[in-house]
Amino acid sequence: MELLAKLKKGYGIPVLAAAFLLSGCGSDNPASSEEPQQNKTATVEQTAMKTYEPPSMEKVPAGPLGESIKLGYKLMNETNTAVPNNVGNNLACSSCHGTAGTDGTSPLTGVTAVYPTFNPRAGKVLTIEDRINGCFKRSMNGHPLEAASDEMRAMVAYLNYISTNVPIGIKERPWIIKNSLQTVPTPDLANGEKLYQQSCSACHGADGSGTGPTSGPALWGDKSFNIGAGMGRISTTAGYIKRNMPLGEMGGVKQGSLTDQQAADLAGFILSKDRPDFAEKANDWPLGNAPADVPYELKIKNQ
C-alpha cells in the first residue's frame, strides 16, 4: 500500500495546511484595484465579522424555499439513507461536518459566500455544486447528484441559509478553524492502535466499522471514506482528531487534550487500514504543488 509505506517512512516534515473539505478554500489571488464593487464591500464588511451565528432551523421561512432548506438539512444528517443511490458507504455529511455543518468541528457556515473559487486539487474553479459532488464522490465514496435535481437544489438552499448575511466574496471567515496540522510528527502506529482501542473504539468500533453515521462514523473498511477524500491526508485527519476528538471524555482522554504526536499516532493508525480506492486519484493537483502528504501517486509530480 502506498499510504502504509509513507506512514512507515514518516511524515515528520512540514505539510501544506490546505484541507479541501467542503469547509471551503479562499482564493489564491489577491484582490486587484479593479475588483468588483461587490467584493470591495465584502472586504470592508468582513473586517467587522469576527464571529458568525447562523439562523436556527426554527426560523426557516414558510413556503417552497423553506421546504427545500429543510430537505437540505435532512440530506446533511441522513445522507446515506436519504440518497442511497449516491452514497457508497455508511456516512453522512454530518459525520465530519457536525450538527449539519453548524458546530465547530468542520463548519460550513458562510461556505456559499466563497464559491465559486479556485480549487488546487481540481486545478480549476469550482462552483458550490461541484464541491458538493466532489464530497459525494470522495468522502461518501458514491456518485454525484444531478446538478438540477431537487436534492442538489436543497443542499445549496440549506448551505445558503446557514450562510445568511455573510457577504458574497468574503476573503476570510475568521470563525472557521481548519482541521490541519502544519507539521505532522512521524506517527507511531502501535501507540495509535493503543490509543484507538482506549478512547475511540466504543464509538467507532474495534474494527473501525462504526456505530452510526453521526454517533460513530466508520473510519476504515468498505463503509468509510475512500482514499481520495480530504480525510485521507494525515495532516487533515490528525488536525481533526486533535481539535475535536473525543466528543466526550473516553478512556481518560478529554476533547482537546491530545498532543500533536498522539493525534498523529491515531491518524497514522486509522489511515494505515484498508479503505475504498478512488479511480480518479492520479488526476488530482493537475497543476502541481500537491501537499506532501497526498497518500497516492499523481500524474503530475511536484518538481
Rank of each mutant, 00 (worst) to 15 (best):
L3H: 06
K8C: 02
G10D: 01
V15R: 05
V15S: 10
A17P: 04
A17H: 11
F20N: 10
L22Y: 12
S27M: 05
A31T: 09
A31R: 13
A31Q: 11
S32L: 13
E34M: 12
P36N: 06
Q38I: 05
N39I: 13
T47K: 15
T51C: 11
P54M: 11
P55Y: 09
S56Y: 12
E58Y: 15
K59C: 04
A62V: 04
P64Q: 10
L65D: 15
G66A: 10
S68R: 12
L71C: 01
K74A: 04
M76A: 06
T79D: 05
T81R: 13
A82V: 03
A82Y: 09
P84Y: 14
A92I: 00
C93T: 01
S94A: 05
S94C: 00
S94E: 01
D103C: 02
D103E: 08
G104R: 09
L108C: 02
T112V: 09
T112Y: 05
V114T: 13
V114K: 11
P116K: 07
F118N: 10
N119T: 03
P120E: 09
R121D: 12
R121Q: 15
A122T: 05
K124E: 15
L126A: 08
I128N: 03
I128E: 03
E129S: 14
R131L: 04
F136Y: 14
F136M: 07
H143W: 12
H143I: 08
P144S: 07
L145P: 04
L145C: 05
A147R: 14
S149L: 01
A154L: 08
M155G: 07
V156M: 06
V156N: 01
N160W: 10
I162S: 09
N165E: 15
P167H: 09
I168G: 14
I168K: 15
E172F: 09
R173A: 08
I176C: 03
I177R: 15
K178G: 10
N179H: 13
Q182P: 08
Q182M: 11
L189H: 13
L189I: 14
Q198Y: 11
C200L: 11
H204F: 15
G210Y: 14
W220V: 02
G221I: 08
K223M: 12
N226T: 01
G230L: 05
M231E: 05
I234C: 03
I234D: 04
S235F: 02
Y240F: 12
Y240L: 03
P246D: 04
P246M: 05
G248W: 06
G251D: 06
G251S: 07
V253I: 12
K254G: 01
K254F: 00
Q255C: 00
S257V: 00
D265G: 01
K273P: 02
D274K: 10
R275P: 00
D277K: 10
D277T: 06
F278E: 09
K281L: 04
N289W: 07
A290Q: 06
P295D: 06
L298V: 02
I300R: 12
K301I: 07
K301N: 03
Q303R: 12
